[in-house]
Amino acid sequence: MTSDEAKFILSAFRPDGSDAGNPAFADALKMAGADPMLGLWFDRSRAHDSAVARKLREVAPPAGLREAIIAGARVSGARKGDGMGRVWLAGLAAAAALAIVIVSMKAPARPEPAGAAFAGFAINDMVTGKHGGAGEPAGALVAELQAEGSRMPGADRINFERLRDTGCRTLSFSGRTVIEVCFVRDGALFHLYVSRRTGADGAAEPEGPSFFSQAAGSAAAWSDRSFDYVLASTAGTEAIRRLL
């Protein structure tokens, strides 16, 4: 083994010494003990690694990230229960246990699973995401949404690709592109998320709005032939319902 080969192997040696008993390092460690130059290199390398690791561990996650993760999982927990084909009552009990209230405006009251997941994603993003976007089409959509008495737009009023390509905020959810715009109505801030339906989702029947509420905020999810929509806000379910 050459000195360079020993350095190569010892680069993977953890600075806290927890690899000391690993036979893969034995020869290189033995060589570092016998070769003063290699030994000096190894000491400095470990000291450098320790210093870098110490600094990097000081980086703290942003406030609210933990709560957003847990809130999102609660919604996904409800989705999982539905997907497993549990009976209606069991699904409702699970949802209640997870502190999620799902109320559908239309009968039969069966929440669209993808809608639940999309709503959870939207509520998380509403709380933790860095909002903002640009582009004339996005501005026009926001103006339309902010107009007194206007309702949520349908597929005929959403030029998805143009919004996406001209600076409207875009996100990713389960491999799908989502556009989002923020707007204010009646003094409250709302977030509209739109994702194009694809594959099996595109073949599924459109569904009317289902409502989701959790500590971080509320959302309504619905779909038409072209898109899945979520409208999210911290203003509450009733405020959302009035805009639909």
Partner: peptide, 11 residues
Amino acid sequence: GDLVQQTFFIW
């Protein structure tokens, strides 16, 4: 933050 949330969401 989005990546971490998405990871736990998948979990």
